[in-house]
Design a protein around this nucleic acid. Structure first.
Lengths: 133, 133
DNA sequence: ATAAAATACGACTATAATAGTCCAATTTAC
DNA sequence: GTAAATTGGACTATTATAGTCGTATTTTAT
């Protein structure tokens, strides 16, 4: 299955709004209402983007968010790493050891899967956030 | 998120076993026990593969499964289509109409997403099942 | 004939991942 | 000090995936 989480989808929408406002700061509420995104969920997403230095925030009344990065250099892969939990195509790719793999040492899938995962990731790395806004 | 379902993973394991046995037919039980795959789940997977003419089955005692296709011409994309439910990267790609899209006509994501989806699919189409066995 | 061993099928339950909610704290302009 | 915003953690709900159960059907060895 290949699917973007709502988090990434919402993040893209939010980034579009924020980018569109230029230097003016935008509140989570405005974005939430403008795009029908659940407020609390959006707030969390924006906080993560802030922690990753994609956004800069000011608190208090009149607070809100502003862009802090060139979205041309942030890839979809980056965004997914920030917001989603894992991106491994098969479990054994995300395990430190493969001691509990049911195939054990006789696995013919691991290497080709690893290769494919890298190819998929490289595709996702080549897609810049700005291309979707 | 990009992840293969267990169904596809189990299917690959099963196909490997079946392919390895050449003309001898293999039972679901043998595969299940040999690879620690839940029997009932595996049975369903094999039935689907049979319906898709990947496998051929014989019923009754001494029954089982045999290959019915060249696995070099079945892609991972094919296998996913057979076994997984949807492969659309964002919801609006799998909707007939986009009447209920919250972005309505002002969506900047749809086209680039569609493009990316095609690229991902083409990658998955280029990966043949045989490469993983 | 019948019992055994297999596939075939549908409905159900369990688990895990994702999405969304709630409540409270903190910050800041007025 | 209050209103409006971000910040943060814990919780619930929903959905998708994984797995189970019961039963029917088919085939064949005896």
């Amino acid at each position: 299955m290949i699917k973007l989480s709502k988090k990434v989808e919402y993040a893209l929408m939010a980034l579009r709004s924020i980018k569109g406002s230029g230097e003016n700061i935008v509140t989570a509420k405005e974005i939430s209402e403008g795009h029908n995104i659940p407020y609390d969920l959006l707030a969390k997403i924006l906080q993560k983007l802030k922690k990753e230095n994609i956004l800069i925030s000011t608190q208090g009344i009149n607070g809100g968010y502003k862009l802090n990065t060139d979205l041309n250099i942030i890839s979809l892969s980056n965004l997914m790493d920030m917001l989603e939990d894992n991106k491994a195509i098969v479990e054994c790719q995300q395990m430190k050891t493969d001691s509990d793999c049911i195939m054990l040492d006789d696995c013919t899938m691991k290497n080709p899967m690893e290769k494919m995962q890298k190819e998929l990731e490289s595709l996702l790395k080549s897609k810049m956030v700005s291309e979707f806004l």
